[in-house]
Design a protein around this nucleic acid. Sequence first.
DNA 1: CAGTGGTCTAGACCACTCC
DNA 2: GAGTGGTCTAGACCACTGA
Lengths: 289, 289
Amino acid sequence: MLIKKSAKNASLPKKNASLSQKNTPLLKKNASLSKKNAPLSKKITPLPPENSSDPRLPRYLQVRDDLLQRIALRSWAADEALPSEDKLAAEYEIAVGTMRKVLDALVTDGVVDRVRGRGTFVARAAERSSMLRFVRQHGKAKNQLPTAEIRSMTSAIPPAAVAEKLKLKPRDKALYLHRTRSLDNEIVLSEHIWLPLARFRKLQKYLKSNSPPSLYPVYESECEVLVSRAIDDLTAKPLNRANASVFKLKTKTMAICVERLMLDHAGEPVEWRTSFVPAERFQYSAEVR
Amino acid sequence: MLIKKSAKNASLPKKNASLSQKNTPLLKKNASLSKKNAPLSKKITPLPPENSSDPRLPRYLQVRDDLLQRIALRSWAADEALPSEDKLAAEYEIAVGTMRKVLDALVTDGVVDRVRGRGTFVARAAERSSMLRFVRQHGKAKNQLPTAEIRSMTSAIPPAAVAEKLKLKPRDKALYLHRTRSLDNEIVLSEHIWLPLARFRKLQKYLKSNSPPSLYPVYESECEVLVSRAIDDLTAKPLNRANASVFKLKTKTMAICVERLMLDHAGEPVEWRTSFVPAERFQYSAEVR
DNA sequence: CAGTGGTCTAGACCACTCC
DNA sequence: GAGTGGTCTAGACCACTGA
């Protein structure tokens, strides 16, 4: 937010002479452009200065980082359009072409979706990051919808390894969920989920009276937490007694263990999850370029 | 290659009036631009008309598809620079900005790499698609280099399922390799590889007197086949007797089976490979956006 | 030094959505 | 019809590479 127009830019082409004096802030707060659209200022949440990115970076990266912050702070609901290219370009005092470069980069990062004629929207990672993509949907009842069951829920100080993943301070509590997912009345997934309690208090209340099929949309609607990307780590391990009993399988049956760290659009950790799929039910596809 | 400038483009801004008559081919063969750099025509391999993409598509997509074809046909060696933006833009008769859009798209698709001050180069998929990324590198001797051993090599008409994946005709032969890979003198990977014989005859000869650590670079140097991307399908299965004996493990020991279809830059299938990693040695990381 | 890709601008026209 | 994103152009200056 504190990035200035560099001297080289200020003294560039003759045409631009009138455009701006030096030391213009990156984001113009409420400038003359609101002459037509009065309440444009509504969404502009000034950020603390520590969030500024390196002023030596290209402008489009600085603007991208700033937009990313505003998205992570939920300046726009997931089904609300961001300001148009023109307006954003005017806010940041950059050319529309540069603003397009910023938005295109956010599209390829999966942060926003753009729809011609409608606008630019904050993207949701929910569907493509479903854990069910590790599960084979075999044969019969292929149209069956998956179901989910919360088997236990507590809040506690998490193990040190989990606390580290979630960047929690030593005595910060976390919400713990044990959840199973079923396909065609067969349990196919057993999940141990840890969430920073500070951001997820409302979830605890909500889950006492609701049993939603997916969690990520609830994180969004109840806790204003929008997930952006997941880092998954797969290994194969024999099931311990507790997990085996969940699947009604023998202890030491081989299973695939997926350890997932889920991040928000600002890159902050949001969830740590350890999931088990019996080896028989495991399947996964990936394309490598 | 047959795409015309559409009428709308030809009659666009006043400035462009002198630029081009209608019905200009997408790729200008050897036009006036070679006034300075005479032998520019060297690399221009005219393509059969069937390869033209839909003329209703945006120009940048048509140009991208055409470049993709030329890359797949190995018009440029992997360490040779493509013509510069300016030259390519002139060849295709599009603006440099549009040409940049094409090249940027190819970069994000992993087809080319661009280096400021040096040029644009055809990318290699070799390292990032190594099967060893599915293998855990544990403890001792972490710096040990992986080794490879070809255990058998024959040419034969492949099973129907393999022939279909490789898009072979009914009686086309394929080269079959059984290969193992070891880490620290322990076999960690057993691979069954099928290659269309037509494109890989030279490989057969080469492997009789060489034992290279990686195959993909040899595909490139011996057979002029440049791999672009892989589609991997993972499941868990118990080892059959033959595969178990390779690892010196008991039959029915659980293993991860990776089925891979490898494609070239034109999207044509190049290799089908079924690999096994003992479950104990399996590990895989992925980021989902 | 010439040549390359990287950033940025300013503006045109188009296709689409929604009122 | 007003507003949105998608395509395309034409040109400026910059940073980096290699001869």
